[in-house]
């Protein structure tokens, strides 16, 4: 039996059209492993993004969310507990249980 991986709840919201990439659902409760299994570093937003792509992105056009290098596609805003992620260290921000991460696309028409 595989060892239990300890997870924490992260509230993830998609807006500005991004929800169409994630089963058309704007709000998700994600059970995120508390460590990145590749290097056992604490789970940060960068790990959350790769976790979302691997497990939740249900759309063939992944480039609307991430680039080939795995980084977020420019033009998507990220808010961590309503704070601009640029003030929180972007991908390096270490997530805590219950954190709310919002991805908002700015690319759709106005």
């Amino acid at each position: 039996m595989a060892p239990e991986i300890e997870t924490m709840p992260i509230w993830v919201d998609f807006a500005g059209g991004l929800q169409t990439l994630f089963s058309n659902k704007p709000n998700h409760m994600i059970s995120l492993p508390i460590f990145n299994p590749s290097d056992f570093s604490p789970a940060n937003v960068g790990f959350l993004i790769s976790h979302l792509v691997k497990n939740h992105l249900k759309h063939p056009q992944t480039e609307f969310f991430v680039q080939e290098d795995g980084h977020l596609t420019p033009g998507i805003l990220v808010l961590i507990n309503d704070v601009d992620w640029e003030l929180e260290g972007e991908e390096e921000y270490e997530l805590k249980p219950g954190d709310n991460v919002i991805f908002v696309s700015t690319m759709h028409g106005g």
Binding site: G17, L77, V104, T106, M107, H108
Partner: peptide, 30 residues
């Protein structure tokens, strides 16, 4: 503009036109 709408909790619509399959408007935009 997006952050203003977010923090003022303005309601807006953000679905791409169904006849314009390029969800991102061209390479200049990217």
């Amino acid at each position: 503009i997006v952050l203003y709408a977010f923090h003022k909790k303005l309601e807006y619509f953000s679905t791409e036109c169904i006849y314009s399959p390029e969800a991102f408007r061209g390479s200049a935009r990217s």
